[in-house]
Simulated assay, not measured.
Amino acid sequence: MKKVTAAGRNVEEAVQSGLQELQLTKDQVEITVVQEEYKGFLGIFGKKNAIVELKEKKNSVQEAKAYLEEIINTIAGPSEIVTEENKKTVCFHIKGEKAALLIGKRGQTLNALETLTQLVLNRGSGQYRQAVVDAENYRLKRREILDQLANRLAKQVSKTKKDVHLEPMPSGERKIIHDALAKHPNIKTFSTGEGRYRHLVISHKDSRKPKSG
């Protein structure tokens, strides 16, 4: 977090000097007036400049990025993280020669990094946002695999009318399958189980089993 002390003939001039040095805008900093300007006796004797302290405001995205960068540099060496954000989601795209090491079996390492990054992103923040951590375009590839799996299992359940329980997976991946089958005429999906055992069930709409969310 950047901080600077700046002086000027008045407070506003001191603030502008500090902003220029930090290369930030006024809404990105916290301003503390250390000393008001004093024009001195008869405008000559004892004259003092205004002094202000400018401190960069806490940026949760930058904090999460720095935290993630520290971890991945240990695992995969120097890597670049490109952030892409909107009101609800912040995506951290990891690029590097050994970025594939960060994926793990079925994305388990990537999912763990995502969980930790999300905790940092929302720590002390008044606005909750979802963190998405990606490497080697894994998320898109995984979505395609899950879409194919959903359609294949939907055909199976339509034919047999027997429920299919998938292995436990993160909420984001369960949602992909939920969405893929949301408009299917014969299929319903729901999640069951607690914590790391929570998993998706694909069921025929004729089944009387209650939907648990």
Rank of each mutant, 00 (worst) to 15 (best):
D27W: 00
T189H: 01
Q23H: 13
Q148M: 09
K188P: 09
L19V: 01
L119M: 10
A14D: 05
K48E: 11
V132H: 06
A100F: 08
R129Q: 03
N186W: 09
S17C: 14
D147N: 11
P78C: 10
I71K: 01
T160D: 12
P78V: 12
I177S: 03
V120W: 10
I202Y: 02
F45Q: 02
G172P: 13
T117G: 09
V29T: 05
V33D: 03
N151W: 15
F41R: 05
G104K: 05
A50Q: 07
E36Q: 12
E12S: 09
K162E: 10
I202M: 09
L24N: 04
K175V: 13
K2E: 00
E70Y: 12
K88A: 15
R174S: 12
V29P: 03
E30T: 09
K183Y: 14
K188L: 14
T109G: 04
L140F: 15
K3P: 01
K58Q: 14
K48S: 07
E84C: 13
V132G: 09
F190A: 06
I71W: 12
T25Q: 12
A76L: 07
N111G: 10
G195L: 13
N49F: 13
T109L: 04
N122E: 00
I187S: 09
L101I: 07
I81G: 00
Q148A: 14
A131N: 05
R198M: 06
Q118D: 08
G77R: 03
L140K: 15
A182N: 10
H165I: 11
V201Q: 08
T32F: 12
L181T: 08
K98F: 07
R9A: 12
L153E: 08
V11G: 05
I31K: 05
K159I: 01
Q16W: 06
N137W: 06
N73C: 04
I145P: 10
F190L: 11
T83I: 07
T115G: 05
L22S: 02
Y67G: 13
L54T: 01
Q156I: 14
E173Q: 08
S17D: 15
N86P: 11
V164M: 03
L19I: 07
K39Q: 08
K162H: 09
L42V: 11
